[in-house]
Design a binder for these strands. Structure first.
Lengths: 122, 122
DNA sequence: ATACTTGTATTAAGTTAATAATACAAGGAG
DNA sequence: CTCCTTGTATTATTAACTTAATACAAGTAT
């Protein structure tokens, strides 16, 4: 899964979000070393400053730790990781229900749509 | 349901999206008259120019028709309305599944989360 | 010790979006 | 006809974000 940058909002926030998703999905496992700022920036096609900002936020969240010259690693704190993971999932679900409600659908209808959804249907 | 403006992306796009949601939800029914640009702008707390841009897009979509001096009305074309409504719902569902997949969940898990979700759980 | 890697900070410039303040166009109401 | 409402267009200014180009700080390896 590559980087997905759109013009919807500050790029550093999108990067921050996608970094969390990668950690949640196990792309960067607990305790593992992250690529360097410059590598990540090149990979995502953004300025190092922008990636840095995203990483600084990740650190503020307590999700990664910075070892001055040895790069960054994902936290060893499983509880913090689990909490983030739950929060992201909860946000997805809540966003879905809110969105459907805005379109005039009931909670029940929203559930049914998901149940009957065929993958790869476009 | 009030206006929900965030710093995530161009405001006029957010307004455009939310206007579609309102039409879908029946806040502005088929053939009904919309508030004036200036009213909508005041209501949403944005500049009239910004609201105008959102409405111009709505018209380009064929969802509203403009009567030069008599304001704007929602289209009478039920087919166009239904198509938009379906598209918005499809986008919601697709976005949900994509998001959960990014977090490392399977399709099946995503379905189960929705089924067991309790409303008002925060 | 010296060079290299890595994170961090700074400053300037360029781009885009939003706002503000008007002005114009066109139809309806009195 | 004249005024009012409504949509539309223009121009300038402001603010935010991103990029660019460096420079610095602090460990590690040779």
């Amino acid at each position: 899964m590559g980087w997905n940058i759109s013009d919807s909002g500050p790029i550093w926030m999108q990067l921050h979000q996608q970094l969390m998703q990668r950690i949640s999905a196990g792309v960067y496992p607990k305790g593992s070393k992250l690529p360097t700022v410059r590598e990540l920036a090149a990979e995502a096609g953004v300025n190092p400053n922008t990636m840095q900002r995203a990483l600084a936020q990740l650190e503020a969240d307590g999700l990664v730790v910075t070892n001055r010259t040895a790069g960054r690693t994902v936290t060893e704190d499983g509880e913090v990781l689990a909490r983030m993971c739950r929060r992201l999932a909860r946000d997805q679900i809540q966003t879905y229900f809110d969105g459907m409600k805005r379109l005039g659908f009931t909670h029940q209808q929203a559930v049914e749509f998901v149940q009957t959804w065929k993958e790869e249907e476009r």
